[in-house]
């Protein structure tokens, strides 16, 4: 219990003192996570929408792979990306290993299936009658998608929150492809792992509080958007 209190106090002290290191780590974490979720949403939403609305051969197989991908262990994603980005690997010439971009790639890969899968199941629940009604109202394909996007707001936001949750919780891949380099690729989760391995449980705990507060702020605001009251 003492450790918990110590950790909380330390977290507050670290933040109050404007500790440069902690600010750098926290900002980087936010930047990397938000960029990852942005890109996986950008690609995942349309993919999920198309998968949820259309019927084609091989759709079930594709869905199986996506559902499998939802449980993709981050270290596996990390390993693949590492092999890809190695100097001797196919993308080696871009020197991307041990950069924030590499972490973004890993987080993109682990969050994409979640966004695609959950968006897809949300869109599958849309009734044929509603689709007919929207079409009959004179909507073009694009207009239909926008209407449906708004209509499935709750499910879509749930997908984004779940994806973001995966990203925030992720550490194995970030460690592997980022390298936990101070001031460069050290994010909150990797520093927590590092501090624990050093035996600095108080700092680790402090970092965990900061991470959870940041996660609370971000998911909280998305949840707020999702649950915004229907004006009665």
């Amino acid at each position: 219990m003492n450790l918990l209190v110590d950790g909380l106090l330390k977290a507050l002290a670290m933040l109050r003192s404007g500790d440069n290191e902690i600010i750098t780590i926290a900002t980087l974490t936010a930047k990397v996570s938000l960029t990852s979720i942005f890109f996986s949403t950008l690609l995942g939403l349309p993919l999920g929408m198309v998968l949820g609305l259309s019927k084609f051969k091989g759709r079930r197989l594709l869905l199986t792979f996506i559902n499998l991908g939802m449980g993709l262990p981050p270290v596996v994603a990390g390993l693949w990306i590492t092999l890809l980005l190695w100097r001797s690997g196919p993308l080696g010439q871009f020197s991307l290993l041990y950069t924030p971009t590499a972490i973004i790639m890993a987080q993109f890969i682990v969050s994409l299936p979640i966004i695609v899968g959950l968006t897809c199941s949300t869109f599958q629940q849309i009734s044929d009658k509603l689709l007919l009604q929207i079409k009959a109202l004179g909507a073009t394909r694009t207009q239909t998608l926008f209407i449906l996007l708004k209509e499935t707001k709750i499910g879509i936001f749930a997908a984004i929150i779940a994806g973001l949750g995966r990203i925030i919780a992720e550490v194995g891949a970030a460690m592997m492809v980022g390298g936990n380099i101070q001031g460069d690729t050290r994010i909150l989760t990797t520093s927590i792992v590092m501090e624990v391995s050093k035996g600095n449980f108080d700092i680790a705990l402090a970092l965990s509080f900061i991470l959870m507060s940041a996660a609370f702020l971000i998911t909280g605001s998305i949840t707020f958007l999702q649950q915004r009251k229907r004006n009665a």
């Binding site: 930047k31 938000l34 942005f38 890109f39």
Partner: peptide, 17 residues
Amino acid sequence: ALVLMAFFTSGQLFSQK
């Protein structure tokens, strides 16, 4: 706003580098 924010952060990330 979310889109712009993400663009901004990612842009910053890459321009910094």
